[in-house]
Amino acid sequence: MKTRDEVTPGGYRPRRDAFWFARSRAYTVFVLRELTSVFVAWTVVFLLLLVDAVLGGSLPEFAALAARPWMIALNVLALAATCFHAITFLNLAPRATVVRLDGYRLPAWLIQGGNHSLWLAVSAVVAFFVLRGFQ
């Protein structure tokens, strides 16, 4: 089915709003959440620096850098942002993965709970190896 071809009359086209994210609280929160991915990226960079230091034998210098107060502050911030990002990401997962068992839709909390449990388990395993390495 097609609409009849017609001359589109003028009409008013509102200008694109460059500050759309300031228009509502929901948009602002969304943009702030998206910005936390910068900290996630930093965490990855920091991890690569660590690996590089271990392999290149410059671990003491790296440890000194990491111990500086501003670096600690930055990493605490990055940890908080990364956790926030991860938690909200995992909480949204049920929206993308609808699991049905025998016609019964798995409730969101079960998927979220599973995700968080798995996350904690993986973290625990990583922590176990890392901490054992320091002994």
Partner: peptide, 24 residues
């Protein structure tokens, strides 16, 4: 995935979910 479509929907269609599911 701003999710505002779902908040605005008066019929609880949840289009945000529909989109994320198709991404997967």
């Amino acid at each position: 995935f701003v999710g505002e479509c779902t908040s605005a929907c008066p019929k609880h269609v949840d289009p945000a979910e529909a989109i994320q599911r198709y991404k997967l």
